[in-house]
Amino acid sequence: MKAILLKNNTLLIFLLLFIGSALLSDSFLSGNNLANLLRQTAPIGLISLGMFLVILTGGIDLSVGSIVACIGVTFALLSYELYYSAGLLLSLAIGLGIGAISGYLIAYQRVAPFIATLAMMTIARGAAFLFSKGAPITVGEHSAAILALGSATILGIPVSAIILFVVFALVFILLKYHILGRHIIAIGSNEEAVHLSGISVERTKFMVYAISGFLAALAALLMVGRTGVGTANIGVGLELDAIAAVVIGGASLSGGRGSVFHTLLGVLILGMIGNIMNLLDVTSYLQQLIKGIIIILAVIFQKNQK
């Protein structure tokens, strides 16, 4: 047991925080709060999984927070024009498309990932404000079923959490058993060797950013499901939370190293920090400060144990 924990620093941090939270607040362990915690974590979890794939290739995706806003607004607007399912699918497709544009720029035009996704971040945010004219848009009545994504539960587990776990499983399978996953990890480890092995580095990178865009769109739908509103202000700084989660999960920002499971733990760690501080009535400014400090400590802890 001790060996497992020492090998899995992220798991250790997770357990320490979990136990600490349970001791600090009686309501932390209540079913209601845990369900709420999962519901809040699901969108950032989806984004982090996409970010994890991008980071595995040695890249970065700054556009995800803006995609969340853009897709939220898009879905809300579409809800007045289209059937619920059509709006849903079109929203996901647009997210995928935005990611694909980043992917195209990075893979085929050799724009640095930081720059390409920074540009897409600005563009997507701008589009969100433009389409919504800056005002929150309530989802149309015949698309109100979206609210199920935010509130429904199956066997007491929030639907959004189930979606997160399904995507987690898919990413896990992708990396372990699929050709694309192998290529993703290999590229992050030694891009030139992969290129010289006759593998299309371009296509692999393109796919990764498209997946990240798609997952950001899915996250946007979960968030709209919670509030029933699409707004251009939402999701600011989400990309940084996602990067933090991936790093807390022990992945290397230079690519090639990391685990999906630990990334998920990283997400839950970040979620718990926020959750317990809410339960303890810590003001939101102070929360940010404490969160930053805990991220630093978690990462240092990771490093020293290695």
């Binding site: 050709i179 480890s189 030694n190 060797a193 006759g198």
Partner: peptide
Amino acid sequence: KHGGILGRSIKENISLANLAALA
């Protein structure tokens, strides 16, 4: 630099160039 992926397993290095044949 150009041949192998040092940090990955021997297995993954050998199968890398022809994964399609194994999938």
